[in-house]
Design a binder for these strands. Structure first.
Lengths: 222, 222, 222, 222
DNA sequence: GATGAATGAGGTTTCATTCAT
DNA sequence: GATGAATGAAACCTCATTCAT
């Protein structure tokens, strides 16, 4: 299945620079103001195009948002992909995953904010399913594949369901990711750990989370 | 410090029935439509009061929202409190916690949706900190207290920082909670596990997550 | 004719302290916010009475305003009266008038702001006539009486109509009064004279205006 | 310095007819109802444009008001300018000024009412200064220039400060202007002179005020 | 006399979307 | 392809006034 897109043909025909500009500006606007408060007239103006043309490219505000979101997700997924494709053992992958999460979260905060945005979005209703399906499928399949492999090699405990495994792993990583970028989660991190996330050494986070994961992954109750 | 509130004195003086009605209707509106799309004229009408009176009770839409949110949080926290106050061992508490999470999430879905709503909120700026601080402080201190006790009794591994411990534990539980109630997380759960959360036996979730947590809590690498 | 009033009988029956408090608070509110933006619920609260009682005292916001206004005008008129009743020559009265204007304007700025307020008011329509009639009649008759007396004594030039005389005199004094208290006129004074009214010596104003008036009053073209 | 304006670029691009229509309707609404009670939905409707477009032209109600005000002031100032630029002696200018004031006040009553409106305005706070500064600077500099010239030529008495001179002159003319147009001042005029301003012969006003001014301007006490 | 809860019309402002050019 | 003027519904919030107690 060709990846579904939410822009009109005209957008595809636009120059690379223009496409990138629109996405960049859109991501900036959506991630800083949130979906409801973002203004697509402003996005058009800041992208250097007319609002009329914007509507030649995207049918609705929602479509523009989803396109921006998907663009951001691609970048985020690439890093995940690079790690999960390697031949490393699962624990090594996990370590890389955590460390990369710390680094990427600071660099790509806009993308992560957009991702965070949709986890609470109420507006898409009919499409939510579709969007989530796409995003989370790509993400989960990477996890599940790696875990299943490790499972088969006997690298991890045998009494856990790989799918739940993947789910729990992502539950540990996603809030961590948000802790670096999203206001709510930032504050939550500070409340729990007593330290502002920006003043904490990434390695301490890596160390603590890795210990937690390693045991959960490997030790099996007799 | 008396708990800070975000309603006016007049609200306190209103009848119990009215207060509950307003909170109930407000929570329903906010959780189903989200903060931005919720309409306080609708909340007033459905509560059986005039909009003018609504503003005698709450200074702004935001204040009404926060009051609804706090009300919901109190209910959710009570369940948590009951478990954490017991004399059970940490692992037993964890098991109760997971099971209760499953049950409560279905019953109090509106409250949880509101909670989910603020994790992505962009509007509160100066107050976000304050609100989050209050909510997460109460929650985290319950975790941390229990964990520290277990720590001192030697019930849990000694090489993990109790604060991170608590943080990771909550990272596992909160997304689970959302998986029962919030559209995005529901779909995500289905993508990861392959099963709709409403058709899954709670005990399977309890079992899988408990194994994961138990190992993470107790097994220490030599 | 008994002086017309704009309050209900109940107000008359209220204690002196209460009456004064209401007027004081009302004048403060009206003069600082202007008629439209003044809030009579706030006036009631700050006066220590209920809004219900306020409406037992005054039928409408407008009536309260007029009563406050009249109260302020009485104070202002008293000073004028004291000067105009004396046996001084017109020029001496004029000098006292100017000097007193400077002093009083600083002391009774609230009253003057209320007076200024009505010179531009659009709301009273049917009553404007009545109110203005009362206020300006008292004021103008004091001027005209003094001028007519001086006229008869031959103290002033004979070719000017005393009524116009009074009108011009008041045209010189009223904007001066406003220059000490009302934002617009304050700035206007600064623009014309180059100096902030609060940093100018009153005597310079007295001297300049008096010279202007004296010649206008006494020198007759041959 | 280019004259500051309070409209958006879009307004400048609108057709001349539309611009004039909006200003005309706006001035009508503001001058008849006052700033607070003026309704910009009404102004939009009566101007034949949508409210949305109105906000494309002006950021706020206040900006629309100021633009209307400035437009009116320009017209008023032109008449003043024409007189003050001439080579006439100061007294001749004064005579023309008074006569023109009478005539113009009847013709441009809306503009004058708007001007009167701001002399009592409480809402603009930070901008009042700016607006007043602009309006009064233009006006006062015309007066002061003419007076200073007359001063140097020895046409007027030497013991009066030209700035105060200008201030007093304007104090005589501005209330006269308002007497033709603004309810309060109209009534005040009737109370002082005993005659309704509309039934009075302009020439009588010219004569009386001119005598007053002439003496004040030319006779110096020995 | 005194209270204050309750009303609800009405005004300013925003912004996604359309469409004539 | 490209423009941007134009729309108008809809939402938050204020406050003078009423009236039951």
């Amino acid at each position: 299945m060709a990846k579904k897109h939410y822009y009109k043909d005209a957008f595809e025909r636009a120059s690379k620079e223009r496409k990138e500009k629109i996405l960049e500006v859109g991501i900036e606007e959506f991630s800083s103001k949130g979906y409801e408060n973002a203004n697509i007239n402003v996005i058009a103006k800041n992208s250097g195009i007319s609002i009329g043309l914007m509507y030649k490219y995207f049918s609705t505000k929602e479509d523009l948002f989803i396109t921006c979101l998907n663009h951001g997700m691609e970048i985020l997924e690439q890093a995940l992909y690079d790690i999960m494709q390697s031949d490393d053992k699962l624990l090594v992958k996990a370590e890389k995953l955590i460390r990369t999460t710390c680094i990427h979260s600071k660099k790509n905060s806009h993308y992560i904010k957009m991702y965070n945005e949709i986890t609470a979005e109420k507006s898409f209703d009919k499409r939510t399913r579709e969007i989530v399906e796409q995003i989370e499928s790509r993400r989960s399949s990477m996890y599940i594949t790696s875990i299943t492999q490790a499972f088969e090699k006997g690298d991890v405990r045998s009494d856990l369901n790989p799918k739940f495994f993947a789910f729990f792993l992502d539950n540990l990583l996603t809030p961590l990711q948000f802790s670096f970028t999203c206001d709510y989660y930032k504050e939550r991190f500070r409340v729990y750990t007593g330290i502002d996330v920006n003043e904490m050494d990434d390695e301490q986070i890596v160390e603590q989370l890795l210990k937690f994961i390693e045991s959960a992954f490997t030790f099996e109750k007799k």
